[in-house]
């Protein structure tokens, strides 16, 4: 299962590069595969590239789901 965790763009660095926040961890990625991405947008990342852009509302809902998933997994493990 290729879980697709949305990462939030925190800074545009020029030359199609950007800093993103992925669950609290900062990373540098390429935006060359998505159009018109801006700070605050969420993207799905694979091997250092943003593959698709999500609208923020959809991304927030997905992140909430991942948080629930964490809880479900921990409950299953305990």
């Amino acid at each position: 299962m290729c879980l697709a965790i949305p990462a939030r763009i925190t800074e545009l660095l020029g030359a199609d590069l950007a800093k993103v926040d992925l669950g609290g961890v900062q990373k540098e990625i390429s935006l060359s595969l998505v159009d018109d991405a801006k700070v605050g947008d969420y993207v799905i990342i694979h091997t250092g590239f943003a593959l698709s852009r999500l609208d923020p509302e959809e991304a927030e809902r997905t992140l909430a789901l991942f948080a629930e998933m964490d809880t479900a997994i921990q409950e299953a493990a305990s």
Binding site: M1, C2, T62, L65, M69, A72, I73, A76
Partner: peptide
């Protein structure tokens, strides 16, 4: 890998689960 992550769909309406699948697994959605 959280092979039991799909437990997050338990208790949801069928159509909601189907809408969530491509969001959770967007690479092979």
């Amino acid at each position: 890998r959280p092979v039991r992550a799909s437990a997050v769909f338990h208790g949801r309406p069928i159509e909601t689960a189907l809408d969530l699948l491509p969001r959770v697994f967007s690479l092979c959605g």
